[in-house]
Design a protein around this nucleic acid. Structure first.
Length: 886
RNA sequence: GGGCGGUUAGCUCAGUUGGUCAGAGCACCUGCCUUACAAGCAGGGGGUCCACGGUUCGAGCCCGUGACCGCCCA
């Protein structure tokens, strides 16, 4: 349909066609040529293969695509590396659920069949999010999608494991891990969520072995006492110093426990005596290692008590064991108090189960050696973190880094490349890329933490460890854009691995984008009902309940805003680290798209009949430019420069709002209105089309669909895609301060007269007889007359009835029935009152000796000039009022 | 407990190095189908810039203390 047959931009009609054009053009998959320094590349934080597009993806996708398109349009070969993450636990959980619904389970079908099923599941559902990115207009490299378990990637992961093992950084050890009884696996610290829980704090008396008394310890987990191996007090706690080195007898068990001193113990918590259970508490574990204590285990991986807990408790769940221990202690008379106690407790982010800290045999990776260079590259600026305030978080995390437990008791993932033969005392271990020769070898059943493989993302996706052309052309990448929550989880580990294995930083800029909260300020989450589906914004759909004005009200439906509007809105919203979702910003984006659409319609109507070659040859001849032409060309350079600056600063909010302000506040509200009555010659037409073309190109990275659609309608269009076009940088030669001043004054004059008309009761369409006095309006008088609806062609001696002060002069309105003199006088009086206030303020300042003496001379002079101007203005306004007024 | 961000108009947010910075969008009121756009145009009302104290000739902005909201870490 032709542009002129439509009066609004309809995204749903246009988006599929344009998406197909982009993806069919090959622009997302540039050849692997040139150097990484010349090219622009960026790896997507690989979305979870089980995932669906949420607000965070939509925002980050908008950011990355804006960057990709911007750099592509500025002549850089641009590759936005796409792929998904195999997401060990999340995916395995999905498939286990599926099996359960079929009355089966992973144990029943065995590892091989299970893995098979996960691959099938992935083939069926794993592409969802990638397809959804297309809806956003994202120009990721859909032609070279990667997966963290595909063949080349496995090679990279195994290579890294083997090399780190050989270097001694990867080792196997008994260590305290976050055991998730729900998924029956160790999970990382970062997959643990702290929740506030009210438990009971039990006070238990432990008698001193020598019979000289007792100590009372406080605990929320009395059942773990069965694994106690010490009691600790603070060395500075005078109440207990005399006990250090003595021992207590553990009730119910009878074991003798030493009383030790450790700084960790807080003197003001509970009784100041702490029972130490190295096998079941992470802090106690650390204390235990410091003091060489035994690490006893009484709770197993299934969350039930082990035989080591004693006959009375073995086999009970931890909760049942707790009840029985408390009962038995009470019977013994050892229970001194039970009080409700609210504290934070770790839960698995994966399964929701309460974490059971356990000591278990796991694979670990020593991080301190890798952390030091990763800190260094940020410290010396080789990797820049935006906003800079996040640098400290990064550094502190790395400074306090601890060994990373990299093994997971799962079936879905990179199986650890370690084989064993024989039994422990004489067990042989083989570590290598492939199974060892000989019989009797068994492979370690565990898989690697998913983040182990994701940490290699920026280079493993480009073919590492092979020296591929892709690696040559696109590594190191330029930008990593992520949410703050994975600055450690991911970004820091990528930096470490990148430096270790490629010798280079994996990217030069890390951008931490905003977190968009629900409209009520809570976190956006599916389970809270506060999540917003980006596709519901694009296509229209029910609003989540959180949008209801009052609970229970019908929140209605989102209109189909289209992808451009969603992109614009999300970018515009994301100003600080946490922002509330703001539907108005999406609507603002839709309005902007529609505005551009109609501005283009208008421009094309104006230039009808002008030769296409003229219209695509840049602005009209300099000599033929009217002030408003020089003004808009100058303003266009300003917005181009600002956009480049904002991109460089990663300030996408200011970028998008600045584009809005230019299109609305300068191009459409003023330039198009200013030229409306002009006869269109070749020069004007060329200038108009030039400005329009560059504006469309400038907005393209943020709003690709509408701009691509309009681009194809511009005269002289050669059939090429805007996405592949180039946008020249701002041209300083087109900046024109004089024209800017001239047109600013005109705009202010028009606005002032319009405001006066409103207050003086002038009918909207009425043309007022008026006389213009003032400097600088020579070329713009006719424009002022037209836009302010004045007839300025009046005899010089006609009597003025009202005076409007405009920059550099006045507009005198002649007497007529078109305005109400009393309303006009009231307006004038109100103006005078306002001016008097400002005059008083200026006089106050200038009357202050301190100000005159200490403020810079320029500021004082400006204040004097302002005062003079205000006084002159008041005098002018007063002159028109009846005697005695104001 | 530590770190970070926030508190400015009814709502969501801008306000660079302290001096025409009190702004925008939406909402609201008034008037307009003015030869692109009613998802539009023109105009208008509306704010003790969280509180207190300090620095300064001058503070929304700098410093201190406190309150509240959110996120992260322990």
């Amino acid at each position: 349909m032709s542009l002129q047959d439509r009066s609004r931009f309809e995204p749903a009609e246009v988006e599929p066609r344009i998406t197909a054009a982009w993806l069919g053009s090959g622009l997302v998959h540039p050849p692997a040529e040139g150097t990484a320094a010349e090219n622009f590349s960026m790896a997507i934080p690989p979305p979870n293969v089980t995932g669906a597009l949420h607000m965070g993806h939509a925002l980050n996708g908008s950011i990355q695509d804006t960057l990709a398109r911007w750099h592509r349009m500025h002549g850089r070969r641009t590759r936005w590396i796409l792929g998904t993450d195999h997401a060990g636990i999340a995916t395995q959980t999905q498939v286990e659920k599926l099996l359960k619904s079929e009355g089966s389970g992973r144990e029943e079908i065995g590892r091989e069949a299970f893995t098979e099923r996960v691959w099938e599941w992935r083939a069926q559902y794993g592409g969802t999010i990638v397809e959804q990115f297309k809806r956003l207009g994202a120009t990721c490299d859909f032609e070279a999608e990667r997966f963290t378990l595909d063949e080349g990637y496995v090679e990279a992961v195994l290579t890294v494991f083997v090399r780190l093992y050989e270097k001694g950084l990867i080792y196997r050890d008994n260590y305290m891990v976050n055991w998730d009884p729900g998924s029956r696996s160790a999970i990382s610290d970062l997959e643990v969520e702290e929740r506030e829980v009210t438990d009971t704090l039990f006070a238990i008396a432990y008698p001193l072995t020598d019979g000289s008394g007792e100590v009372v310890v406080a605990t929320v987990r009395p059942e773990t006492m069965l694994a106690d191996t010490a009691v600790a007090v603070n060395p500075d706690d005078e109440r207990y110093t005399h006990l250090i080195g003595k021992s207590v007898t553990l009730p119910l068990v009878g074991r003798e426990l030493p009383i030790i001193a450790d700084e960790y113990v807080k003197t003001d918590f509970g009784t100041g005596c702490l029972k130490i259970t190295p096998g079941h508490d992470p802090n106690d574990f650390e204390i235990g290692r410091r003091h060489g204590l035994d690490e006893l285990s009484v709770i197993g991986e299934d969350g039930c008590m082990l035989p080591e807990a004693g006959e009375a408790y073995a086999g009970l769940s931890a909760a049942d064991a707790q009840r029985k221990v408390v009962e038995d202690l009470r019977a013994l008379g050892a229970l001194r108090a039970e009080d409700p106690y609210t504290h934070t407790v770790p839960f698995s982010h994966r399964s929701g189960s309460r974490i059971e800290p356990l000591v278990s045999l796991q694979w670990f990776m020593r991080m301190d050696e890798l952390a030091a260079p990763a800190r260094q590259v940020v410290a010396d600026g080789r990797v820049r973190i935006h906003p800079e305030s996040q640098r400290r978080r990064y550094d502190e995390w790395l400074a306090n880094i601890r060994p990373w437990c990299i093994s997971r008791q799962l079936w879905w993932g990179h199986q650890i490349p370690v084989w064993y033969r024989g039994t422990p005392p004489t067990q042989e271990t083989y570590v290598g890329m492939t199974a060892p020769e000989g019989d009797g070898w068994t492979r370690d059943p565990d898989v690697l933490d998913t983040w182990f493989s994701s940490a290699l993302w920026p280079f493993a996706t480009l073919g590492w460890p092979r020296e591929t052309p892709e690696l040559q052309a696109f590594y190191p990448t330029d930008v990593m854009s992520t949410g703050r929550d994975i600055l450690f989880l991911w970004v820091a580990r990528m930096v470490m691995m990148g430096l270790e294995f490629t010798g280079e930083v994996p990217f030069t800029d890390v951008y931490n984008h905003s977190v968009i909260q629900a409209p009520d300020g809570r976190r956006m989450s599916k389970s809270l009902g506060t999540g917003i589906d980006p596709l519901a914004l694009i296509d229209g759909g029910p609003r989540p309940p959180v949008f209801a004005k009052r609970p229970g009200d019908d929140p209605g439906e989102f209109p189909a805003y289209g992808a451009d509007a969603v992109r614009f809105g999300l970018l515009a919203m994301s100003s600080t680290q946490d922002v509330r979702f703001n539907e108005e910003k999406i609507a603002q984006g839709r309005a902007l798209g529609n505005k551009l659409f109609n501005a283009t319609r208008f421009a094309l109507l104006k230039v009808e009949g002008i030769d296409a070659a003229v219209l695509s040859g840049g602005p009209g001849a300099e000599a033929a430019r009217a002030p408003e032409d020089r003004w808009i060309l100058s303003r266009l350079q300003a917005i181009k420069a600002e956009a480049a600056q904002r991109i460089g600063e990663f300030d996408f909010s200011k970028l998008s709002l600045a584009l809005y302000d230019f299109v609305y506040g300068e191009l459409c509200d003023w330039y198009l209105e200013l030229i409306k009555a002009r006869e269109v010659d070749a020069d004007l037409a060329a200038t108009l089309l030039h400005v329009l073309r560059e504006t469309i190109a400038l907005v393209h990275p943020v709003m690709p669909f509408v701009t691509e659609d309009l681009w194809a309608e511009l005269p002289g269009h050669d059939g090429g895609l805007l996405a592949e076009a180039s946008l020249p940088a701002a041209d300083a030669a087109l900046r024109d301060d004089a024209a800017e001043a001239q047109v600013s004054a005109l705009i202010e004059a028009v606005t002032t007269v319009r405001s006066w008309r409103g207050d003086a009761g002038v009918a909207a369409g009425a043309i007022l007889d008026a006389r213009l006095t003032g400097d600088g309006y020579g070329e713009t008088t006719a424009l002022l007359a037209r836009l302010a609806r004045l007839d300025l062609d009046q005899p010089a001696d006609a009597a003025g009835a009202a005076t409007i002060v405009i920059p550099g002069g006045t507009v005198e309105i002649l007497a007529s029935g078109a305005f109400d003199p009393s309303e006009a006088a009231a307006k004038t009086e109100a103006q005078i009152a306002d001016l008097q206030k400002e005059i008083a303020r200026a006089r106050g300042k200038l009357g202050n000796d301190g100000f005159v003496a200490k403020a810079p001379a320029a500021v004082v002079d400006a204040e004097r000039a302002k005062l003079e101007r205000l006084e002159a203005e008041v005098a002018t306004l007063r002159a028109q009022l009846p005697e005695g007024a104001a």
